[in-house]
Design a protein around this nucleic acid. Structure first.
Lengths: 258, 258
DNA sequence: ACAAAAGTGTTAAGCGTACACCCATGT
DNA sequence: ACATGGGTGTACGCTTAACACTTTTGT
């Protein structure tokens, strides 16, 4: 029943935090699984947590939400804080609310120490994005400890964050199936067939036949060949292709009409 | 950043509610979009809200979560409270946390009146299920006002509940695509080809060719013909089929290996 | 006999998969 | 010349979609 509702938090009885003159809503957090390809591996951005110069583990970039903030806004904020990126499509994919998710004694102890707050129950809403990696992205000092780490060689992670990452990797495949556009938001404006294929291979964690992949690319209808060719490579140079937004939208207009 | 954490709620500073000797966590709710087929229409279970014998609108069955309760548990509880059903697969499909979602003045006024509580921000986690409709299901007095209403003829709904239902109807199609099993959890143990086809048609909101549908049924491999036939119908009697769980699991074992 | 719904088969088109060789470029 | 990766076509099997008539049963 929904008849028992949230008492106002504005009466000051909650230990709310003032940050940037905004009030946190200290019951719900957003965690972002930011994926990218680094050194030919599918990687996730992780923040390193240390205590007394001792690395204790890693966590996903995340934050409690603000009182006046939508979940999607919180996710965008975290994306920007942790990578400097904006306008990257973010997808909410699952919420995690097991009361036991924040009860690992080591994790609680470590986090309470770092945060100077008592750690209670938190329901977290997980988001996913495929990020262009930029140099000099870690301008925020909180994230000078952020690292892109391969999703299949994960370090010790806070609470259920490993579980969240595994779910995200499953989810991104379904997302790309439905909205291939996100791959082109990730890729540079001009890309070679091999770059595109390799991106798909790393996302799906399987090889695609080169000839069949070219055929598929052509069948899409929204990937257009340019006149430009790779230069300075010690082998036959590859053609650059680009993504035609208008054609894409026409093709996918039907699909979303349901 | 996740460093600002939830203060313990056990210090009594929150206006928590004691119900069934458990403490509510008054910041997160679970709402269930319970779908079923009634009178050959895809319907959703809605609770009617009245004030002074005046029908003000409808809402999804939902509830704040308990302190010690997982989100999935809360959804199962709501399912049971509102329909009496247990063991029906429930799928978490999306969370809704727009701060403005609970700010419609009419809705707030009406709900505050009904609940005798100040309505603040609530993040809700939405679940979906396909329910067998049972007679005499509304044993819980809270739900003597529950009705199955067609999803394409929705009445005035509380807050963003219409939006949640629309999202659920999209989602159930994807769910059936991935896990056809839920259709057989919905259907009786013995069902005719037409019943199955009609179920698909109502879920997908489109017609399926009869012959092609039979062919597809057979290709599944887990739908087995029985010797039983319909009786007492004023036309050729239909064969009953049944769902073979073991065969199904063998077939879908591969798919989930990813 | 008729009304009403059940059940059945073929064809064509599109899509996925498997597979091997020549091409262009820099060293 | 050679090493390196780029680029191309065909054939087969599977899946999907379109389409019309006969069968069974109760009245």
């Amino acid at each position: 029943m929904c008849l028992y509702l949230c008492p106002s938090l504005e009466d000051g009885t909650m230990k709310t935090q003032k940050i940037n003159t905004e009030i946190l809503y200290p019951h719900v957090s957003v965690d972002c699984v930011l994926l990218s390809i680094v050194d030919d591996k599918l990687c996730v951005l992780l923040a390193e947590l240390t205590r007394e110069n001792d690395v204790k583990g890693f966590k996903l970039p995340g934050s409690l939400i603000y009182e006046t903030e939508d979940l999607d806004q919180a996710a965008s904020r975290i994306l920007k804080e942790s990578t400097g990126l904006t306008r990257i499509p973010l997808k909410q994919f699952k919420s995690f609310g097991d009361p036991a998710r924040t009860t690992n004694k080591d994790d609680v102890h470590w986090l309470e120490n770092a945060s100077k707050l008592k750690v209670g129950r938190i329901v977290t809403v997980a988001y996913l994005a495929l990020c262009k990696v930029r140099k000099r992205q870690n301008t925020n000092e909180k994230y000078n400890t952020a690292h892109w780490m391969p999703v299949d060689e994960l370090p010790r992670l806070l609470f259920d964050h490993e579980h969240i990452i595994k779910a995200a990797v499953q989810e991104i495949r379904r997302w790309v199936d439905r909205e291939p556009k996100i791959v082109f938001d990730y890729l540079p404006a001009k890309f070679t067939a091999t770059e595109l294929r390799r991106t798909y291979e790393l996302i799906y964690n399987k090889k695609f036949d080169v000839r069949n992949f070219h055929k598929k690319m052509n069948s899409f209808g929204y990937i257009v060949a340019t006149d430009e060719m790779e230069e300075g490579v010690p082998h036959r140079s590859a053609r650059f292709y680009s993504f035609d937004k208008v054609k894409y939208k026409k093709i996918y207009a039907k699909l979303s009409n349901n």
